[in-house]
Simulated assay, not measured.
Amino acid sequence: MTFLIVGAVRYMLRNTGPRPASLWQAPDTTAIPHTATGDMVRYGRELIAHTAAYLGPHGSVAQISNGMNCQNCHLEAGTRPWGNNYGSTATTYPRFRARSGTVESIGKKVNDCFIRSLNGQPLDSNSRELQAIIAYIRWLGKDLPKGYKAPGSGIRELAYLPYAADTAKGKTVFEQKCQRCHGSNGTGQLRPDSIEYLYPPLWGENSYNTGAGLYRLSRFSGYARYNMPLGATYNNTQLTDDEAWNVAAFVNSQPRPVIAFPSDWPDISAKPPDHPFGPFSDTFSSHQHKYGPFEPIARQHKK
């Protein structure tokens, strides 16, 4: 009981702090130069926005992904503030990532998304497509100094709930606020051409697999809180923190491609509290690592 009270107080305090006054804004696409380099940047943006048309099951270049577009997760071609954008990717890569235990390049990051979020195959490192995507990501971060992570980059983190996320409550949130776009069965809605998704699948065989970043509740909840449902933005939200955590728990409890990545987190003590696959360096269950509460896990890791 004491833990719940203390946790609730911490939760409220951590969610009343100031927000950044000025968030990263993407450069104007009209400023992309009309050069060979500019052509690669434009092609990279096109690939992010319409991945399935080029690289999906009916792709014109290759058939190596599940039919989702990169911008189904990286909103507005990776430019929306707090919309899982690429704003600071170029300035912070290459960098060491504990998940792989290696220093990763931008190309490695992109291919991880193809393997995990798009449940597909990696692009050849020398392919025009991978080089174009990298060129676009670098162009987005061209005005930022090296090593700087701009406010509004990526996904905004939420404070941990002082209790486990509730899948039953999350189902209610999904039915009331999500299924009108993603469908009652969570399998999304295709465009009339049946090549790209208007609204992506949140589960099922064409959705992201269990190795994707959004399969962690902290990532999904922060993403949903400031971007969903349709029409929501970081300064005009429609979900509470509790609703975001709960709907994340519901969505990620649904069936999806299960892919094992045994080489992930070679240092198991570096696994985040909400990584649900063992082995673990602590004594908490896989269930708690998936649904929480995560604060006790994080506290033990700090010790």
Rank of each mutant, 00 (worst) to 15 (best):
F261Q: 07
T237F: 02
T30S: 14
W265E: 10
E157A: 13
H275N: 12
Y136N: 02
N85E: 01
K303V: 14
S127M: 08
W265Q: 04
A52T: 05
Y215V: 04
S194Q: 14
P201C: 08
P94W: 15
A77E: 13
K271T: 12
A135H: 00
R14K: 15
S207R: 07
Q25M: 15
C73I: 11
L230S: 06
Q238W: 01
Q179R: 00
T16H: 14
D39E: 12
A53R: 13
V103Y: 12
P145C: 06
S125R: 11
C178S: 01
A168R: 11
F250Y: 15
K302D: 02
N119E: 03
Y234T: 11
A159C: 01
R256A: 12
A132W: 00
P200D: 00
K146Y: 09
D282P: 11
D242Y: 02
S263W: 05
P201T: 05
L158C: 08
I259D: 03
P257C: 09
A159Q: 12
K271V: 10
Y199G: 01
P151T: 07
R138M: 01
R191T: 00
R19Q: 05
K146V: 15
S153L: 04
G17H: 07
G292S: 09
G204M: 04
T79K: 13
P266W: 07
A270C: 07
T89H: 13
R225S: 08
S194L: 14
G44P: 06
P255C: 03
H34W: 02
S60H: 01
H301R: 15
V9C: 10
I48A: 05
N85R: 03
L123N: 08
T167F: 04
Y160L: 04
C73R: 05
W24D: 06
N235V: 12
N69M: 13
G83K: 06
T79E: 13
T233F: 04
R99T: 01
Y226W: 09
D264Y: 14
L13C: 12
C70F: 03
Q25E: 12
S253H: 10
D39I: 01
R14W: 07
R138P: 00
A135P: 01
A90S: 15
L4N: 07
G231I: 03
T37Q: 03
N235H: 14
N227K: 06
E295R: 10
P257F: 05
F114Y: 11
N227E: 09
H182Q: 00
S221M: 10
A26C: 06
Y11N: 12
Q25A: 13
K177A: 05
K108W: 05
P266L: 05
T210L: 00
C178Q: 02
Y93L: 14
